[in-house]
Amino acid sequence: MPTTNVGADDPPWVDGNALAGPLGEIMGTDLTVAELTCAGCRMTRPLAAMRVFDRAPGLVARCPGCEDVVMRLVRTADRALVDLRGSLVVSIPVPIT
């Protein structure tokens, strides 16, 4: 079940599942099952566990531990930019061969 703080006295965030649609559209795969290692605190968590601030000029995913930015996704008129400088490693499950 998605988590969110909508309704709290703070800017709303939703969980990383909110990235499933936009990332899937761009990458053609479900990246919410990927794991990101935060460049700030070095904790590794599923992308779905990140906090996504979606009421902004882009989607901003932050580490729930240290609040550093782990991913930014911006749609321009004809491009999608995925900024991952806040993630040391992106680990993506693949089918066992």
């Binding site: 703070d10 800017p11 601030f53 009421r55 902004a56 000029p57 882009g58 901003v60 932050r62 609040e67 930015v69």
Partner: peptide
């Protein structure tokens, strides 16, 4: 006055 924010306040 919409509130847009890329992170916690």
């Amino acid at each position: 006055f919409p509130v847009l924010s890329a992170g916690p306040t």
